[in-house]
């Protein structure tokens, strides 16, 4: 990586910050192209670790971090990686950052590391990250790629949190480990079970579809 390309990226970053399209790159991940509700990408961690709000949040942040770092690296190396081996190179870049994240989470909280289990390592095969690297970072400047990764990451975290919160409240009667429902509330055990993940996501998708259909007719 030469200094020149870094400099070019920095000036590009500043330029995009001043221009109006930069906000578009960020906003699109939140709503219009929400990775989970609209693009339906990266489903495996969405369903698997969304049984409590805190797990969902941690997973979302870890994924955002990996996406941000890999987008930066892919974008800055985009003129050096040969076309034929690009996918393999992207996966290697992603795998490196996931390994770093894995060790970082184990360092911060052993308990959280245990709860998320193999799903931290499985961030490598999250189609969302690879699709952002291939579809966006490999074609755009560093600044734009950073905004794109942040937008998509926040959108992903938001979606995970939506699922995690619903499943924890209904399945456990708690929210961030605090009891918020009266003791007489009968927990819906099914919500913590795998089936609950499918149902909750299906219902969120239904709500999104209904909102979209209503907007289209209005």
């Amino acid at each position: 990586m030469s200094d020149q390309s870094v400099k070019k990226g920095e000036s590009g970053f500043l330029a995009t910050l001043k221009g109006s399209p930069s906000t578009d790159e960020f906003i699109k991940g939140l709503w219009k192209d929400n990775p989970v509700f609209v693009q339906v990408l990266g489903m495996c961690p969405v369903l698997a670790v969304s049984n409590t709000a805190i797990n969902a949040l941690a997973m979302g942040l870890a994924t955002t971090f990996v996406m941000l770092m890999s987008n930066i690296l892919v974008s800055s190396l985009r003129n050096f990686i040969p076309k034929q081996v690009r996918i393999a190179s992207y996966i290697l870049i992603i795998a490196t950052f996931v390994t770093i994240t894995d060790y970082m989470i184990a360092f911060i909280s052993v308990e959280l590391h245990k709860a998320l289990g193999a799903f931290i390592s499985l961030i490598v095969v999250n189609c969302l990250i690879l699709s952002r690297a291939e579809a966006f970072a490999s074609k755009n400047t560093i600044g734009k790629s950073i905004l794109d990764a942040l937008g998509m990451g926040v959108g992903f975290t938001f979606a995970l949190f939506c699922l995690g919160a619903v499943r924890e409240i209904l399945g456990n009667g708690t929210f961030f480990d605090m009891a918020i429902l009266p003791g007489s509330f009968q927990e819906w055990i099914v919500m913590i079970l795998p089936a609950g993940g499918f149902f909750t996501l299906a219902i969120w998708l239904l709500i999104f579809n209904a909102a979209k259909a209503k907007k289209a007719t209005a």
Partner: peptide, 22 residues
């Protein structure tokens, strides 16, 4: 119904299958 078509429907079926597999 139109709203349910697609991924949402597949997920609902998957949920029921998942219950069965329990």
């Amino acid at each position: 119904p139109n709203v349910v078509k697609g991924t949402a429907l597949t997920l609902l079926i998957a949920g029921i299958l998942s219950l069965t597999f329990m």
